[in-house]
Lab assay of single mutants.
Amino acid sequence: NQASVVANQLIPISTALTLVMMRSEVVTPVGIPAEDIPRLVSMTVNRAVPLGTTLMPDMVKGYA
């Protein structure tokens, strides 16, 4: 089972991601792979991401 990136807090729309905002967790459905966390830092989300939500590729500008 692959770990995915999960929001560690509410991430408001257009917020630049930082390490403290994300954690890795094995979830269903599978989202962005946890090993991509370093790549996600400073990318922005294009929607509000509630606490505990799995980050999907279409939620992060420039990721997909």
Rank of each mutant, 00 (worst) to 15 (best):
N1L: 15
N1R: 04
Q2Y: 09
Q2R: 05
Q2W: 11
Q2C: 13
A3P: 14
A3S: 10
A3N: 08
S4V: 01
S4G: 04
S4P: 03
S4C: 07
V5P: 02
V5F: 03
V5T: 08
V6A: 02
V6E: 01
A7N: 01
A7T: 12
N8C: 05
N8Y: 03
N8I: 05
N8P: 03
N8E: 08
Q9I: 11
Q9Y: 09
Q9G: 05
Q9P: 01
Q9C: 07
L10R: 13
L10H: 13
L10Y: 15
L10Q: 14
I11N: 00
I11E: 00
P12C: 07
P12Y: 05
I13G: 15
S14P: 02
S14T: 11
S14K: 11
S14A: 13
S14G: 15
S14D: 15
S14C: 13
T15Q: 10
A16L: 09
A16E: 12
A16T: 08
A16Y: 07
A16W: 06
L17Y: 00
L17A: 00
L17H: 00
L17I: 08
T18L: 08
T18R: 08
T18A: 08
T18V: 06
T18C: 04
L19H: 10
L19R: 13
L19V: 10
L19C: 07
L19D: 06
V20Q: 15
V20N: 12
V20S: 14
V20G: 14
M21F: 03
M22K: 00
M22N: 00
M22E: 02
M22S: 01
R23M: 05
R23N: 09
S24Q: 14
S24R: 07
S24G: 09
S24A: 14
S24T: 13
E25S: 09
E25Y: 08
E25C: 07
E25H: 07
E25V: 09
V26R: 04
V26C: 10
V26D: 15
V26T: 10
V26K: 06
V26A: 13
V27L: 06
V27S: 05
T28K: 06
T28W: 07
T28L: 08
P29D: 05
P29K: 06
P29V: 06
P29M: 04
P29R: 04
P29W: 04
P29C: 05
V30S: 12
V30H: 14
V30G: 07
G31E: 02
G31C: 03
G31K: 01
G31Q: 03
I32T: 01
I32P: 00
I32R: 00
P33Q: 09
P33M: 08
P33T: 08
P33I: 11
P33V: 08
A34Y: 07
A34K: 06
A34V: 10
E35N: 09
E35C: 09
E35G: 08
D36F: 10
I37N: 00
I37F: 02
I37C: 05
I37G: 04
P38V: 13
P38G: 11
P38S: 12
R39T: 11
R39Q: 12
R39D: 05
R39L: 10
R39W: 15
L40P: 00
L40D: 00
L40R: 03
V41E: 05
V41Y: 04
S42G: 14
S42D: 13
M43N: 05
M43I: 03
M43T: 04
M43Q: 07
M43K: 11
M43W: 06
T44D: 04
T44A: 10
T44E: 09
T44Y: 12
T44G: 04
V45L: 09
V45E: 03
V45W: 00
V45G: 01
V45N: 02
V45R: 00
V45T: 13
N46Q: 08
N46H: 12
N46W: 06
N46M: 11
N46V: 12
N46E: 10
N46T: 13
N46F: 06
N46R: 08
R47H: 12
R47W: 08
R47A: 11
R47T: 12
R47S: 11
R47L: 07
R47V: 15
A48D: 15
A48C: 11
A48W: 08
A48E: 15
V49S: 01
V49K: 00
V49P: 03
V49N: 01
V49Q: 01
V49H: 02
V49L: 09
P50G: 11
P50I: 06
P50W: 09
P50M: 10
P50R: 08
L51G: 13
L51D: 14
L51N: 14
L51C: 11
L51K: 13
L51S: 15
G52P: 00
G52F: 04
G52W: 04
T53R: 08
T53Y: 10
T53P: 01
T53N: 12
T53Q: 12
T54I: 09
T54D: 02
L55T: 01
L55P: 00
L55A: 02
L55V: 10
L55I: 14
M56P: 01
M56K: 09
P57V: 06
P57G: 06
P57R: 08
P57D: 05
D58S: 11
D58P: 14
D58N: 13
M59S: 07
M59G: 02
M59D: 13
V60I: 13
V60E: 03
V60M: 05
V60N: 01
V60T: 01
K61L: 15
K61I: 14
G62S: 12
G62R: 06
Y63S: 04
A64H: 14
A64C: 15
A64V: 13
